[in-house]
Design a binder for these strands. Structure first.
Lengths: 233, 233
DNA sequence: CGCTATCTTGACAATCTTCAAGGCCTGTGG
DNA sequence: CCACAGGCCTTGAAGATTGTCAAGATAGCG
């Protein structure tokens, strides 16, 4: 892969690649394999040998774990700039499926290890990313263990609104995932998610202009409903 | 602090310190400040500047997040060998309190950064630890989002039984934390935890010889109740 | 040996799930 | 161009698991 592709990559500034300066970006380009995953296709399977790491450059993927009887818990959604594979020892601890078309760069494990040895700053960055994901995971545990359905949905919408990748339009939140995905992320059923959104809309806190999009009308009240969101200074 | 203390430390082989060989252990000893925290005392407060990192050498601490109205989610229990502070950017993302007497080594942030630069293997190890905690966090999300009370309690007991620190006696599980702590860890009420333990005891799956201890009588059935625990090869 | 914490047990209530049906929106084919 | 099909979402009614409130038992500690 040519260095130019990395230089012009939309994820350049958002991903772990930002730890490597332009001059040496060619080293990464040489080891990365760009791929496109079709909507609905899985590309990481829980329990499989963790041979590859992925850096998402476009689209959105759902990360999840399954129980034997099919119950599913989505542990996160990955989009531009997200690095996949940290939660892996010898085997992946989760599965991943593309929601819409996902573009990403694949690194084999030995190649990534090579890069980490070569670029200490890259490893520093990976540690930062891991720390950030850990705090997000703890916030999610608080949500799953202690928040009501209403609080969960409000928290989810606000968290999405904070992500730059969720659509630049002020207060407009893009939701590429289905109600079932949202439910499995929030530990609810899709019916409860739907009902809760209806309630929030009836209360004029949000609007649902079209499928896959939500507008936040009253962020303040939504925040007070979401309850103790991670304190932002 | 003298190097001998580190050499004889009970957490030596369990903690991140194992990434540093005996010969250079003195460097760590020189920067670590040993401390003892009395039962019930807090030593990390969510939202406070994350100036220090901790390495637990004895005892058990609860790590948790609070909602404004007092609801609490325990995100984990830390004991011998656990490193605290990874889930921290500028501020701590969680609080920590000693359950029984906790002994630990405190590292100031600048000192830890110094050590990481000096010992690349230490940073590698920290990344491994972060990855491990991330997989544990995802397993906990599955538990909190999708498992029944019965499944949660069974999962908890089995997870505790797997930890060497929970008491070497086969099938004997030490539980230094209260029912309220267990409940706040599993996203339940203490009454539900108590009832569920009673049910499991009535079914002869466990025994409760004394407070703070549980004996697993039928690990097989407990496993099938716990449902899709992280697959162990 | 009694006091206070913690834990257990009970009855009732509430939130959320389950089961079921109907509506909407999109894309496709006649 | 419009009708139809299929998926996704919404809405409804009933039921179950877990939470809440309250009282009583147990155990550790001074």
């Amino acid at each position: 892969m040519s260095p130019e592709i990395c230089l012009r990559c939309g994820a350049r500034s958002l991903s772990v690649c930002s730890a490597v300066d332009d001059a040496r970006l060619g080293r990464i380009a040489a080891l990365a394999v760009p791929e496109t995953i079709a909507p609905g296709r899985g590309f990481i399977a829980e329990g499989e040998p963790a041979n590859d790491f992925f850096n998402v450059t476009a689209g959105t993927a759902r990360l999840f774990k399954l129980l034997p009887d099919g119950r599913r818990q989505i542990t996160g959604f990955a989009s531009v700039g997200d690095f996949l594979g940290l939660a892996a020892a010898a085997e992946y601890a989760f599965s991943a499926e593309a929601i819409d078309a996902v573009r990403c760069c694949r690194f084999s494990r030995p190649r990534l290890i090579l890069l980490l040895a070569e670029f200490p700053a890259l490893e520093d960055r990976l540690l930062q990313v891991a720390a950030h994901e850990l705090t997000a995971a703890q916030e999610q545990m608080l949500l799953l263990g202690r928040k009501s359905a209403r609080e969960r949905v409000a928290s989810f919408l606000l968290a999405r609104a904070r992500q730059p990748s969720s659509g630049g339009v002020a207060r407009g939140v893009r939701l590429p995932m289905s109600r079932a995905d949202i439910a499995d992320y929030l530990g609810l059923t899709l019916e409860t998610v739907s009902r809760t959104l209806t309630t929030l809309r009836a209360a004029r806190l949000i609007a649902i202009p079209r499928a896959g999009e939500i507008t936040i009308l009253d962020a303040g009240r939504l925040h007070s409903i979401a309850g103790g969101f991670a304190v932002r200074a």
